[in-house]
């Protein structure tokens, strides 16, 4: 229930929501999965006649599950409010850095699993070590991603 509430609080929608399900959410990390739809629009152009998931979208998926979902949980925890009481329309979210290496391609229809470990959450900045695995449990990509997340009225 809690996991579904976090997903509902995400400030994304189709075609730019890259989170299906969360498995584990705690103050030190998060894990979740996403399946890249076979018919997603970007496969028409990446690449011509050879559909492969763009690396930039693998990074986005890692950021949405690994940093934003965790960030929503941590903000709610810090404010000691329930997720229902947290209005994420009032959250300011920005990607601040990503340093990611890619090891394997993700093809249309593949499910990926994202595992994120918090490095720190200080002064509204959340920095995480994030890994993505494919269904064979092979590392697809790995790196560090950081973002700023804070309530609008909390200057």
């Amino acid at each position: 229930m809690l996991h579904q509430e976090i997903i509902e609080q995400l400030p994304y929608s189709e075609p730019f929501l890259f989170v299906d399900e969360l498995f584990h959410v705690a103050h030190d990390g998060v894990s979740g999965v996403y399946t890249f739809p076979k018919e997603a629009y970007f496969y028409q152009g990446h690449f011509k006649n050879h559909p492969v998931t763009p690396g930039v979208l693998l990074t986005e998926c890692m950021a949405q599950i690994g940093v934003v979902c965790l960030g929503i949980y941590l903000v709610a925890e810090n404010k000691q409010t329930s997720l229902e009481g947290l209005d994420t329309n009032m959250l300011q979210i920005a990607l601040s850095s990503s340093d990611v290496q890619y090891f394997a391609p993700v093809f249309p229809g593949e499910q990926v699993r994202v595992v994120s470990k918090k490095i720190y959450f200080r002064f509204h900045k959340l920095k995480c070590e994030v890994s993505m695995y494919n269904s064979q449990n092979k590392v697809v990509c790995h790196g560090t991603i950081a973002g700023m997340i804070k309530p609008r009225n909390d200057e």
Partner: peptide
């Protein structure tokens, strides 16, 4: 940028052995 300013403060904490509050 504000994100790197956070890292500067964290480096300051390490360098000077202090803790900076919000």
């Amino acid at each position: 940028n504000s994100a790197n300013l956070v890292d500067i403060i964290l480096d300051v904490e390490d360098e000077f052995g202090i803790e900076v509050n919000d």
